[in-house]
Design a protein around this nucleic acid. Structure first.
Lengths: 131, 131
DNA sequence: AATCAGTGTGATAAAACATTACATGGTGTT
DNA sequence: AACACCATGTAATGTTTTATCACACTGATT
């Protein structure tokens, strides 16, 4: 049985993952930057994705297609890993972590609600109901 | 379920297959030259192996470890695909196909028998029983 | 208008791979 | 013993793929 392939084994290169997920390299790296996936690396620093990574990317894609933004997706997919938000730091990269404040939470949820049905909706009834 | 990964999908690059099978690139390409596997190619001519390819390579490796040579392995693994042998052609490469002749078959089978138990055998009883 | 989020694109460097040719250690053959 | 062959190693060279970084763009938010 294929030498016991585990769902966490680093197996696939970028190109394969792009085709399997129909995402661009840019997108995939961007989602990694936001810790939605943490692919392994080869000795030569090339990303190697696991089956789990691919599943996760497909989840991300699905949520994006539903109009949910990064913040929401993170909230949904990283709900175990001690909820936190990232802040851009001057030394480049997304790193700082902090608990959600009440205001942030409210803001985020409002955004999610607004965006949730943003697609496939009739052009008449718009977001003027929210603000 | 990982976007319906089929056992025939071209997914893995050489490096991954090397690690999964513990074979060298040279070996893997050599077995391909002998039609034991026929990996797909990327747009840029890079080999892409499927789960089936990996299984096949592991079978090959197993048979080799048992002391069976290429000819025997081909006979075993390609038994459906209309048995044939290859002859080196001057224009390089293994290509010509031809039905086994009786002599060839006898010779091959003799070799297989001799080699089959070549390893893990007591150094006393040797191939002097065959010739 | 200015900002921000998500993604595209281009430049550059390095890693991984393909191909080819030659070398080598066993095994079998003459 | 000398030779031939099989399966594999290795080196040279060229191409493909990926990494990183920087900047641009579009649509939505403020």
């Amino acid at each position: 049985m294929s030498s016991q392939i585990r769902r966490t084994m680093p197996l696939f290169p970028m190109g394969t993952v792009m085709k399997l997920t129909d995402l661009s390299a840019r997108q995939i790296r961007y989602y990694e930057q936001h810790h939605l996936i943490t692919p392994d690396r080869s000795d030569g620093n090339r990303r190697l994705y696991s089956l789990n990574d691919i599943d996760r990317l497909l989840e991300v894609k699905d949520l994006l297609d539903q109009g949910i933004n990064m913040a929401g997706i993170k909230k949904i997919l990283l709900k175990d890993e001690s909820q936190e938000i990232e802040l851009e730091t001057k030394d480049s990269g997304v790193k700082l972590k902090k608990e959600f404040t009440d205001e942030e939470l409210r803001k985020l949820l409002r955004k999610e609600l607004i965006n949730a049905g943003r697609f496939n909706r009739s052009p008449g009834m718009d977001r003027r109901f929210f603000h």
